[in-house]
């Protein structure tokens, strides 16, 4: 219990810090994150610029704060896509287990699993060009089968329970039982899985932006900051360290929070961690 609470508190604090930084950046950042200052470029972290400056002399802290917005927005919307499409599909597949619809949904899931987010992003970018929206779609599509599968799995075992049989004897329809009995009983699982997918979304967004398939300039993003840092990592390591540590701490915070939530809500929850 103490371990669960520690995870929850530590993870929650880290996640809250990142969200706070993103929110504050809308009204205030230490410097204008687009302001160039070529003479003051590549400064290491110091009293003036807490996290140093980049190769154009831009303030790293300000860029990290604004970059958090991109990361959070992309990951959040992608998780939202996964939940709003995946959960109903999973509920339907479980309610109609063994029917052709279940078969089609599950085969469709398997098929999407064969297209990692990056591959989807490559396809979309090749056709429509790069951008943050494409990153959202690519990560979101990959999230659909994740939520569909976990919802279906949990719902299937619930459908075997006697309280569902009792509801059926009371004449309730499959849709109504799914909404009234199944969904509330898988909600905890979805919250925990949602946290994990959120952290995976942050990682995926960073990766896509790093290879140029995500957010485009001038939208700041942690992944692109790393791409910019690559050639200068030997002369100014902080260019790579700062965004990297920001990513690690955010993802770590979300994962700790997910683990803590899981142990706190129900230690027996089955969450796919992939």
């Amino acid at each position: 219990m103490s371990g669960a609470r520690r995870n929850l508190v530590l993870g929650g604090a880290l996640s809250a810090l990142v969200v706070l930084a993103a929110l504050v950046s809308f009204v205030w950042t230490p410097y204008d994150h687009t302001a160039l200052d070529i003479p003051g470029k590549l400064q290491p972290p110091g009293p003036e610029h807490w996290l140093g400056t980049d190769h154009f002399g831009r303030d790293m802290l300000s860029m990290i704060m604004v970059g958090a917005r991109t990361s959070i927005a992309v990951a959040l919307v992608a998780v939202g896509i996964g939940i709003t499409l995946g959960v109903p599909l999973g509920l339907a597949a479980a309610a109609l287990k063994g029917s052709w619809l279940d078969e089609v949904i599950m085969r469709g899931n398997d098929l999407i699993f064969a297209f990692p987010s990056l591959v989807i992003a490559i396809l979309i970018t090749a056709v429509f060009g790069a951008g943050a929206v494409n990153a959202i779609i690519a990560i979101g599509i990959f999230n659909i089968p994740v939520f569909a599968r976990i919802t279906r799995g949990a719902a299937l075992s619930l459908w075997q329970r006697e309280f569902i049989l009792a509801a059926r004897v009371s004449g309730k329809s499959a849709a109504r039982i799914s909404a009234e009995h199944i969904l509330p009983n898988v909600a905890n699982l979805l919250i925990v899985q949602g946290t994990i997918q959120f952290s995976l979304g942050i990682l995926a967004e960073a990766g896509l932006s790093y290879v140029g398939l995500g957010a485009q300039p001038p939208t700041p993003s942690w992944g692109r900051m790393l791409a910019d840092a690559q050639t200068m990592v030997s002369i100014a390591p902080h260019l790579a360290l700062v965004p990297g540590i920001a990513i690690v701490l955010t993802v770590l915070g979300l994962n700790l929070m997910g683990d803590g939530l899981r142990d706190w809500l129900d230690p027996r929850l089955r969450v796919a961690r992939t």
Binding site: E162, F163, L165, A166, S170
Partner: peptide
């Protein structure tokens, strides 16, 4: 028609109160 099942632990939705649980057949 109504039914009483075997498992005293699995027969009820753990998230509902007794009044809601036992009035479920009112749906009929």
């Amino acid at each position: 028609m109504q039914v009483v099942f075997q498992d005293p632990f699995g027969s009820f939705n753990p998230r509902h109160r007794v009044d809601r649980l036992i009035t479920e057949p009112f749906h009929l």
